[in-house]
Computed example of a mutant assay.
Amino acid sequence: MTTKTLVVGSTGATGKHVVLQLLQQSQHVHAIACNKQRLLDLLDEIEPKSSSLYAKQLEVTEASILGLTDEDLKKITKDVDAVVSCLGHNISFKGIYGKPRKLVTDASRRLFTAIEANQTENQEKKTKFVLMGTEGVPNPAGGDNPRTRLERSIIFMLRYLIPPHADNESAAEFVHSKRDNPNIEWTVIRPTDLIDGSVTNYELFDKPQGALFGGDDKATRANVAKSMVDMILTDSLWEEWKYKMPYIQDMI
């Protein structure tokens, strides 16, 4: 099976792995990146000469996601089978407290709008949407294990003092609300504490396992990317987790 996937947040610590792993699986990728050369350099850091090896499979639009027009996004999403959002805020004062405050939410909303606009012209086309969240983002449908008073207090402070956390929650809530279009199916991947590392084995759960802070569970960014790629390429896995918010951790 050959697919075409749009990846936003492609130069991020996880997004670059999503792009490369799809290319390694002989898939086509359309990446949105503010700096194309930076993306190519990041791919070469993971796998030397990969940017040239997979050049025919990779298309890059050099722009910021929120800088594109509605018509641009409609054209970009027209022929894709899946969209993966690994967007996040830069870990800097400007990245955390500056604009855009709702990067992930606004991008998700605009991408859904573009996909839906294309589906009015091709009502049979189905699209998968994969959003990267965090362990601290609650499932709007409920079902997560109850948090301790300390954890609830910390999440409350994060929500009101750290804008990126509120953005991640808002994005998950928006995606969760989108079940009225049967031709757009989604999942929100919630990783535990992220670390660098290679692809190994991972586990998916329907809710976070253990303590929110200070636990031993980890997830390599490469494994988080692998879970997203597996979702796109493995129909049985997608059927199991679509319209859900799986929690991912490395297999111990």
Rank of each mutant, 00 (worst) to 15 (best):
I162C: 12
V18D: 03
Q119S: 05
K36M: 03
V84F: 00
T113W: 14
K178L: 09
S236H: 15
V84E: 00
L6Q: 00
N118T: 09
H89L: 04
F213W: 10
T200F: 05
S52W: 04
K125N: 01
L40M: 02
D79Y: 15
P182A: 02
A82M: 05
F213L: 08
I115F: 13
I162F: 15
Y202V: 07
K99C: 11
F156K: 14
H28I: 02
G67N: 10
V224F: 12
K56S: 00
K36P: 04
L40N: 02
E185K: 09
H176N: 15
L53Y: 05
D230M: 10
I189N: 07
R152V: 13
I115S: 14
Q119V: 11
T234E: 09
M251S: 08
L68Y: 05
L111G: 03
I96R: 15
I76C: 03
K4P: 00
K36N: 04
Y160P: 14
V80I: 05
L158K: 11
G136H: 06
K226D: 12
K125D: 00
L58V: 01
P140K: 14
K102V: 13
V224Y: 08
L23M: 01
M228V: 06
E240P: 07
I76M: 01
E47H: 00
M245V: 08
Q249V: 04
L39S: 08
A219L: 08
D106N: 11
C86G: 00
P100V: 06
V83P: 03
E59M: 11
P246C: 11
D250T: 06
L158R: 11
T187I: 08
T187A: 07
K126F: 02
D106G: 15
S170I: 14
